[in-house]
């Protein structure tokens, strides 16, 4: 389950970075992010992707995990240990976007 949590968090973070740093309304002249920082972030993206790959490799030989997709689309899987999930996220509950879930079809398939 820990691996599952990690992957879900990584994929969601990957999607967040992909959006918040590279998309959205641009206020020209006021972008404050230095190129060097962005490079670092995208290096991070590649690492995240690698971690997803690793997870899949582990899963191939490991136990079947619960399908997140059977949970409401915009809620954490109820089986997930909420305290440890929050521990890896921003510190305040007020900071938590209400939606964070992966619909992982592969897991649904594993269960069927």
């Amino acid at each position: 389950m820990r691996e599952h949590l990690l992957a879900e968090r990584d994929v969601t973070l990957l999607d967040l970075l992909d959006r918040i740093l590279d998309k959205g309304v641009i206020i020209s002249g006021d972008i404050t992010i230095s190129v060097a920082n962005v490079d670092l972030i995208y290096l991070g993206l590649r690492l995240l992707l690698t971690s997803v790959d690793n997870l899949e490799a582990m899963r191939a030989g490991g136990p079947t995990l619960r399908a997140a997709s059977e949970q409401p689309f915009h809620a954490l899987p109820s089986e997930v240990d909420q305290s440890s999930a929050l521990a890896q996220r921003p510190s305040s509950a007020a900071q938590q976007p209400h939606r964070r879930a992966c619909a992982d079809a592969a897991e649904a398939r594993d269960r069927s």
Binding site: I20, H74, D104, A105
Partner: peptide, 13 residues
């Protein structure tokens, strides 16, 4: 294949 899906997001794209 594996499908990884997250959302809903604000319409950044």
């Amino acid at each position: 294949v594996r499908l990884l899906c997250t959302g809903p997001w604000p319409a950044y794209h």
